[in-house]
Nucleic acid binder design. Sequence first.
DNA 1: CGCAGTATTGAAATTTCTCAAGCCGAGTGG
DNA 2: CCACTCGGCTTGAGAAATTTCAATACTGCG
Lengths: 261, 261
Amino acid sequence: MPTKTLAEYKRVRDLLLAKVREHGTLTAADESAICAVRAQTKALAPGADVVCQGDRPDVAVFVLAGMLARYHTLPSGDRQYLSFHIKGDLPDVHGLLLSIMDHSLCALDEAEIAVLPHEQLVHLCARRPGIAFAFWRLTLVDAAIFRQAITNNGIRSHAVRAAHFFCEQYFRAREAGLVEDESCSVPLNQSELGQALGMSHISVNRTMQRLRKDRLADLRSGRLTVLNWNALQRFAAFDPTYLHLDKISKVSQTRFRTGRK
Amino acid sequence: MPTKTLAEYKRVRDLLLAKVREHGTLTAADESAICAVRAQTKALAPGADVVCQGDRPDVAVFVLAGMLARYHTLPSGDRQYLSFHIKGDLPDVHGLLLSIMDHSLCALDEAEIAVLPHEQLVHLCARRPGIAFAFWRLTLVDAAIFRQAITNNGIRSHAVRAAHFFCEQYFRAREAGLVEDESCSVPLNQSELGQALGMSHISVNRTMQRLRKDRLADLRSGRLTVLNWNALQRFAAFDPTYLHLDKISKVSQTRFRTGRK
DNA sequence: CGCAGTATTGAAATTTCTCAAGCCGAGTGG
DNA sequence: CCACTCGGCTTGAGAAATTTCAATACTGCG
């Protein structure tokens, strides 16, 4: 096995381990079981679909670099973006248990993913409750983010809505270590931003101008710059509780014993 | 133990078993483990909160009768309804792994719930992967419903949005055996419907009039009547795939063996 | 330089909301 | 039996927000 591939393997393994650790308490055996997972890495071109609405995938995606997005396609062809995923995210573990995709997943920029066969993951979860809980939890955080999106697109005004969205993206990017110079990658143009936030691209444009003028945030050529984090967070009434970064939960305090009915 | 309580126990047990079976394939041992779960039943008054944003619950709720709703409360006091839950639903299993509630749960009408201690559920899931997968899947279907709500409130016009919402409620009620005479309970007034769909109560009113005039659906005093299911479904472009009623998935075809590392 | 995609602008058309008032049916008490 | 009240539904109209349309800049790149 060439060195390049070995380095690749270690990179994926370490990132995956780190992610699972974020969501649960693992035993040494759990960790080595995760290390045994074989994944293939894959480069994606901007706009490329990874899985589509209606597919029955047999692998899960693990984001290594770039940004992926989930979206719905309506019969009219219109698109609604649902969520955005960065390094360390597993945007479709749910495909593990739901056989048919109810939405699509695409790359927004040059992205890189690792592909984890469902078979291996199911096997892993079936015999290691600690790992199952961690993956499960990860999908629950996803769900919490969806809930927030409902509220965001539902009752918040355009400006607050965009601000809240930027808070979320920036906050998550920071957690993933992807913020540099108060800025992070958000590879969306104004039309796409509109398709995420349920507003026209004209409204997005005018909203962006306002956020820029008020020195809160700016989005230019796929890069989000936060001009004043405190002010932005206050303006958006952003409360990161829903991201559930406090991994402490009942489960992690419980001792598991596999092996007994 | 008085007969009444025994009948009560059986009722909860059977409903829970049925729900879990919907989401996975259980062994006899799994089933008897579920039967061993002890739950308390509880009556709820309309409007009563079950858990609130910020709480750290140690029980999960299982709906026996009536309707419960999840909602967000904004600093302004405004409310956004997120999802609605009927007989057989488990609207907060996610509290099992996420320690802090990012939303609230309330009863919309006279409701009845069973209260399942997290401790028992975690224990159950930790040693019975089949059960864990079933509960996990249930939260994934929830997430799919959230995604649909994002799209619904995001790009669909008011009339289509309401129609789609009614399709979902009616379809789920029918699955749960709660439809009678083409109608089911949806105990919301027009203001609350607006808080679910992200529109003002005036818009709701005008939209309802239109759906009524077009002989699609009607909502009066907490009861939704579908006047023409096919037409309503067509109008809303309702595709129930996202409810994932096809329980067949990779997992249910896999044989699990607990007990080996 | 010119192209393509993106951003910006202005103005009209439309939708949606807000406000204010009236209606209606169920339940209450005189 | 009827007046009264309450909550929810309905209506109209003006105000505000948002979208649509159309045209004009800007920018990076071949």
